[in-house]
Design a binder for these strands. Structure first.
Length: 631
RNA sequence: GGAGCUGUGGUGUAGAUGGUUAACAUAUCGGCCUGUCAAGCCGAAGAUCGCGGGUUCGAGUCCCGUCAGCUCCGCCA
């Protein structure tokens, strides 16, 4: 109960831009802890909690030496622990032996001290420090450990190579802002657990050593010693297990689940990441949305102090692509794409005509005040559009007299005016056009749209459900249909007849949760009868034997009274990063990997001994080649 | 797999068009100093410029390769 009131209190004072609350904002927490246990006899208080109420109290503190200010006969030390800083004072009149010891102190030494909390005189109060009204006059000290000079400053807002931070991650985490991130992440997870528990969900663990299944991302494989030439795979998500738990009659499952995908990394992608994994039986999509919205709203309320409007907006995939050129639109700004198929048709511009004749689309993006863009800027944008898969980019400056553009000659003046009107273009704007396959057109312009995103002004986050994803997409490389979400996603009932006639138009009962242009979760209602599931496998070009071999256990389970069920997985790392305002999820993962999936601290991944390989009956390709060469 | 950016004392940076002893701040070490909190003052030590090769009389600077980090595309939900 006390925790509840503490949290809501914090929320109230925390409504502005991203700000961490203090690790221990109230004295009660720390005091309760020390009164209850003797496990920490070296400390009676956390450094960061001391205030005028403690004046004249004898305290025991322990922590790390921060800044040292040596005045000769008087030494000030900033003592830091998890909670914050307190100024220690050593006076040589308090005893020479102690003072000599204080002179030895260096950055990051670990010390335990005893002393008296004193009120600082008015002119020596430090207003920028929460504990700045008091200081501790030290009467006894023990140096618990010394320290090498750290490779970077242990303080907030440092500007060092990320290389170095990752190599010495334990020191990086010692910085207050990083400790606060860990604390915020802890609180997020705690809120999730409390919320799910409150809604009757059971947290269940699922295996990390499981079997490799086709589809989806590349698996991380773990060789089996007992079964030579066989491998476990680390789960890309607990997908199959959570569905099987529904068959088990669990009805409501969740897990803070670690997931593994062996794909290339990004600022928001790590090879191992954490999902809030949820699955429920006997629930409608709307019911699941309400549940999820409640959870997310709770997090933003408790941690950011932001009241979120519910229910969240919903938008079909098709509309998201048409208007924003992405399946995860950022709705905090406009700059919508404009469909000009009908007008493009009337032009003499072959590129436009050609795209339309081939079933493609022509769309435009208005760049307000685009006249600031130089010819070179436009060339760069064209290059970017090409890199993104478009055949090219058409552009024009909009001026009072008409268009100034290499393509203006293909457009009659009335047509130009019509396009201007449709795109709400004014003199001084630039218009960008892409004519290509519908999907390419949308994607490329969507990317350019984000290029021109105005600076964020609103603190109000924009949550959005993207719904009605296609069930399949065509995989050019493999020349077959692939699941857009995953193979267990149920088609919409009314689209079932299309499965045979026109599978690519079938819509799935799948949904993504999008926040400010970031996909923070996704899920679907699942197939719960084995015949439909078998049919989907077939449409995915999985032979009967193959699907029986890979997913037989699922098909079998579905035949034993599987309840209708569905769920969602929320990206915890991404959510926490949004809550802290960090650009990269590495900031909120204690020990992240680099872009090439290595850990600079431990040196993982690393070579292993021949003996280990032998036990696993593995031979490296390199080894094999050498042996072959010898023959 | 591809593209871009970055790499100079411990750290953060400066080093136009190639030119002698690679500069500054901070940290570190030593000395002085009783009210600092980015303490101050004096002094010292510390980098063959990511690595390898090339061009050149001469390379931190130009070229090629390579490694590492970051960002993006492909990939990934």
């Amino acid at each position: 109960m006390r925790r509840e009131s503490l949290l809501s209190g914090l929320a109230a004072q925390n409504s502005g831009p991203v700000e961490f609350e203090d690790a221990f904002s109230t004295q009660t927490d720390a005091e309760a802890f020390f009164q209850n246990g003797t496990e920490n006899a070296q400390k009676t208080h956390y450094c960061g909690v001391l205030n005028p109420e403690h004046v004249n109290q004898e305290v025991k503190l322990a922590g790390w030496v921060g800044k040292r200010r040596d005045h000769g006969g008087l030494i000030f030390i900033d003592l830091r622990d998890r909670s914050g800083l307190i100024q220690l004072v050593f006076d040589q009149h308090d005893g020479l032996e102690l003072f000599k010891l204080a002179e030895c102190l260096r950055s990051e030494y670990v010390v335990a001290v005893e002393g008296e909390v004193l009120k600082r005189s008015e002119e020596t109060i430090n207003r920028s420090l929460p504990t700045g009204e008091v200081e501790v006059r030290v009467k006894g000290m023990k140096i618990l450990n010394t320290s090498k000079t750290p490779p970077f400053y242990i303080e907030d807002n440092i500007n060092v190579d990320e290389n170095l931070r990752l190599r010495y991650r334990y020191l990086d985490l010692r910085r207050p802002e990083m400790l606060k991130r860990l604390q915020l992440r802890h609180r997020t997870v705690k809120l999730v657990r409390d919320y799910m528990d409150h809604h009757d969900f059971l947290e269940v663990e699922t295996p990390l050593l499981t079997r490799s299944t086709p589809e989806g991302a590349r698996d991380f494989l773990v060789p089996s010693r007992m079964h030579g030439s066989s491998f476990y795979a680390l789960p890309q998500s607990p997908q199959l297990f959570k569905q099987l738990l529904m068959v088990s009659g669990l009805e409501r499952y969740f897990q803070i689940a670690r997931c593994f995908r062996d794909e290339d990394l990004r600022a928001d992608r790590q090879p191992e990441f954490t999902q809030v994994d949820i699955e429920t039986s006997f629930i409608s999509t709307e019911g699941l949305f309400a549940l999820t919205e409640g959870l997310v709203a709770r997090l933003w309320k408790e941690i950011r102090g932001i009241e979120i409007k519910r229910p969240f907006l919903q938008m079909p995939y098709r509309e998201a692509m048409d208007r924003f050129g992405t399946d995860k639109p950022d709705l905090r700004y406009g700059l919508e794409l404009v469909d000009i198929n009908d007008l493009a048709q009337k032009s003499e511009f072959k590129v436009f005509n050609f795209a339309l004749e081939n079933g493609g689309a022509v769309k435009g993006l208005r760049v307000p005040d685009g006249k600031r863009l130089s010819r070179k800027d436009l060339d760069d944008l064209t290059l970017l559009a090409r890199q993104l898969g478009a055949k090219g980019l058409a552009w024009t400056y909009v001026e009072e007299e008409g268009w100034r553009s290499p393509i203006s000659k293909f457009f009659e003046q009335p047509l130009i005016e019509e396009i201007n009107r449709k795109m709400e273009a004014e003199s001084g704007d630039v218009l960008l056009f892409v004519a290509d396959r519908w999907e390419t057109t949308c994607q490329v312009l969507g990317h350019l749209r984000s290029h021109f995103a105005p600076p964020v002004t609103s603190a109000q986050p924009s949550f959005l459900w993207v719904v009605d994803f296609p069930l399949f997409h065509y995989n050019e490389e493999e020349q077959r249909n692939d699941s857009d979400h995953h193979p267990f996603t149920a088609p919409r009932d009314e689209d079932m007849p299309l499965l045979d006639s026109d599978p690519l138009t079938v819509r799935a009962r799948a949904y993504d949760l999008v926040l400010d242009g970031v996909e923070i979760g996704g899920g679907s209602m699942r197939i719960h009868d084995s015949s439909t599931q078998a049919k989907i496998f077939k449409l995915l070009s999985l032979s009967e034997e193959e699907s029986r071999e890979k997913f037989g256990f699922l098909l079998e389970a579905l035949a034993y009274g599987a309840p209708p069920h569905g769920g969602i997985a929320l990206g915890l790392d991404r959510m926490v990063a949004l809550l802290t305002g960090d650009e990269s999820i590495r900031q909120v993962i204690p020990f992240p990997k680099t872009a090439t999936a290595s850990c600079l601290m431990t040196g993982a991944p690393s070579a292993v001994s021949c003996k280990q390989l032998e036990e696993l009956k593995l031979k490296l390709q390199q080894q094999q080649q050498e042996e072959d060469n010898e023959k």
